[in-house]
Design a protein around this nucleic acid. Structure first.
Lengths: 260, 260
DNA sequence: TTCGTTTGTTAGATTAGTCTAACAGAAATA
DNA sequence: TATTTCTGTTAGACTAATCTAACAAACGAA
């Protein structure tokens, strides 16, 4: 349905990757092994092997062992590498659980382009070359995630020794709350100051750092705020609007300007 | 084929997202607009609208305007948010071109789990709260990418003021080259010291930072090295093996230990 | 009001991927 | 050797998504 980089489908890439993985730990790969590993029936594997065989990605004659061709090996390895890179990013940088990361990576690996893959690989090399920076990111971000109950992102000297600004409660420049804006003002979101359910709801609705919001109509505890995002007006109960912190200047920090 | 988070397919999520985007900029959404935006024929859109209608994600009666239901709006927004997060990560952090990033994000957005999405959003908030760190990552990584011809990752004080180790040519601890290892030794990869084609080939083959390699048989300029990776032996011409730098100790730096 | 033009639907084909159920070949066992 | 078990294939059904070609409805303009 979507492009996969190679000229084969995501499903076939998965079959190749699975064969690769099996051959990496045992001497032969059979239909049954593949079916088991991929949680499909052998009846699904058979025709898939036929398709792979036609595309000259595996060597296979009926009821025999399965071998990867040069070309098949290449695609399998590349897919596996994408998988590893994505999975490592999710676990090592974002701190996602191994299981969830594997899940996500399994699906996304088919759609990461060559250039993105290369950059992601370079990113890990960069972090490896800068161990101090890597530690800073991991512990800093880890710290932020830990006090999830209050979900306050504070950049203090204890987290980030780079800080040049004063070690205030906040991040140096004061943030505004969405509810304090004048009607009609347009700002960029700096942070969602909420945890759990409210945080999830706001993020699902597109309230992410760097996104631009316009306050259309202020509200009260009874009357929801109306806020424009992506050119779309949506209602926001006061309890939620309170949690949206924005930059004080219209342009945001300028750092993340990705508007046209 | 793969799980999408919502209980609908990636294709239907795309339709919802497109409708959302169209309604964000104009007052009505018609079959023709959707077909044009998604580069499919109107004959493909019609049945898709029927499927969405059955799932109560849009309100649609034949030959009329298309409206999102509450539930459809929710899925559309969440998909869009995932898209934006992925696209921003690819452009802002990895420095991928906007076009390529859009492409990748378009496909991957359907498979990023809720928890990963939330973490990615938090990651941007974290960087926003630590502007110094953000600058460090962007400029540092950017610098590394720039001198692509020699593709040397050096962590010098000019890039990273955090450096506690000496400002040597290399990253503090000396790296070894794969070709200098004793046969049978197992090391983690630190960096690929090559650009362009050789770099691409090595990465495609799974030679990424943190991956474990075992030198099975040393080679010469004529005889390729044999190296084990993912339990798989592969031949590596000397010219390529020379570019693989590994950590001197068996455990790697310990930072990225993701072996079982 | 009538006739193009635009817009949307339907029919029918195709591809990919999955399943269950039935069958076939090979290996193991009695 | 005969029979049972394991393994793999095939047939047939189904779903999702796309296309082309033909048709139908609505709109606009003369």
């Amino acid at each position: 349905m979507f492009n996969t980089g190679s000229d084969i489908t995501g499903s076939l890439e998965d079959y190749l990757e699975t064969i690769y993985r099996i051959l990496g730990r045992s001497s032969v790969a059979r239909v049954r092994d593949i079916a088991e590993e991929m949680q499909v029936t052998p009846a699904s594997v058979s025709p898939a092997m036929k398709r792979l065989s036609e595309k000259k990605l595996i060597r296979y004659s009926k009821r025999n062992y399965i071998e990867l061709t040069e070309k098949g090996l290449f695609i399998a390895r590349r897919t596996m590498t994408r998988h590893n890179l994505l999975s490592r990013f999710l676990t090592e940088i974002l701190g996602i659980s191994r299981e969830q990361a594997e899940n996500d990576a399994c699906a996304m690996e088919h759609y990461l382009s060559d250039s993105s893959m290369e950059r992601l690989a370079a990113f890990f090399e960069f972090l490896a070359a800068c161990p101090e920076l890597q530690v800073l990111i991991k512990t800093g971000f880890g710290n932020c995630l830990e006090n999830e109950t209050e979900y306050l992102f504070r950049c203090s000297k204890s987290i980030c020794p780079l800080m040049v600004h004063d070690d205030k409660d906040n991040i140096g420049l004061e943030l505004l709350c969405l509810i304090d804006l004048e009607p009609g003002s347009s700002r960029k979101i700096a942070r969602i100051n909420a945890a759990q359910k409210i945080r999830r709801q706001l993020i699902d609705s597109g309230f992410i750092q760097g996104a631009r919001v316009i306050l259309i109509r202020p509200g009260t505890t009874d009357l929801p705020f109306i806020v424009r995002l992506d050119g779309y007006d949506q209602e926001l109960p006061a309890a939620m609007a309170e949690c949206v912190l924005v930059y004080p200047d219209c342009e945001g920090t300028g750092e993340n300007d990705n508007e046209e």
